[in-house]
């Protein structure tokens, strides 16, 4: 049960000639909820996009011992990597149900039906709105749908990019509550967040990313007490400009 689900070694990612992630390594065990926090522009989104295969990168990525590095995105998805992207990337002109069904595109038809029932059980709100177009949902519902769509693939690892972004505080609480439920259900989760407090409260382990590098890691309570984290967010900093 506690095998390594994800292993990233020395990942470098560049946009054209400009490198934005400089040799990031991280590791997470099966069933854990790991968070990567950091200020805007730290390279968190880039990191996730490279892990899932949206961006070319050098270095290695292993999912449950399987090498992902040379594989294209769709093959990584089939292997069990799922990303809930920062911009949700829903199919806005299609129904909620179709969005979910397409999330299970890679699964056999029979499993897809079961998964759909599971998702509707977990997100009753989506069940109510199953016939509605995804583009007409509220921000919180969109986030739920994006998560539901990713879960339809029954991923080995669920990665979420800033699920709290643009959501009102009450909705953020709902989203994070669902993450804890998923974790309890045994889903391995890699959570990238700018909302550091919320992320640290539910994570098993945390990485802090700054300017494309991992600058700190440890148990969430240790990180939360780390004065440096507060500084890098609010600029009480040691850097005199």
């Amino acid at each position: 049960m506690s095998g390594t689900i994800l292993k990233v070694r020395d990942l470098h990612v560049a946009y054209g000639r400009v490198e934005v992630v400089h040799g990031v390594s991280l590791e997470m065990t099966q069933g854990a909820l790991i968070t990567v926090i950091g200020a805007n522009g730290a390279g968190k989104t880039t990191l996730l996009n490279a892990i899932v295969g949206l961006l070319p990168a050098s270095g290695t990525v292993e999912l449950a011992g399987e090498a992902m590095t040379a594989r294209p995105l769709e093959s990584r998805v089939r292997a069990g990597l799922s990303l809930v992207p920062e911009r949700r990337e829903l199919f806005a002109d299609m129904s909620v149900e179709d969005n979910l069904l397409l999330g299970g595109f890679r699964r056999p038809a029979r499993e897809r039906g079961e998964s759909l029932d599971d998702i509707f059980a977990r997100f009753p709100r989506l069940h109510e709105r199953r016939a509605q177009l995804a583009g007409t949902l509220s921000g919180g519902e969109r986030q739920m749908l994006a998560m539901g769509r990713a879960l339809m693939a029954r991923p080995k690892l669920l990665m979420l990019d800033e699920p709290s972004l643009g959501l009102a505080p009450l909705i953020v609480r709902d989203v994070f509550h669902i993450l804890t439920e998923l974790r309890a259900a045994g889903v391995s989760i890699l959570l990238v967040e700018q909302n550091a407090r919320a992320a640290l409260q539910i994570a098993d382990y945390a990485y802090v990313m700054e300017l494309g590098e991992i600058t700190a890691q440890g148990r969430p309570d240790e990180i939360a007490r780390d004065q440096r984290l507060i500084e890098s967010y609010l600029g009480f900093g040691r850097n005199e400009y």
């Binding site: 799922s82 829903l90 199919f91 299609m94 693939a153």
Partner: peptide, 20 residues
Amino acid sequence: KALRACSSNRIGARLVGIPT
């Protein structure tokens, strides 16, 4: 529906594993 998904949102379609 998968073809529609490709036109609706290319990144989304790739993320659910639809081979472009």
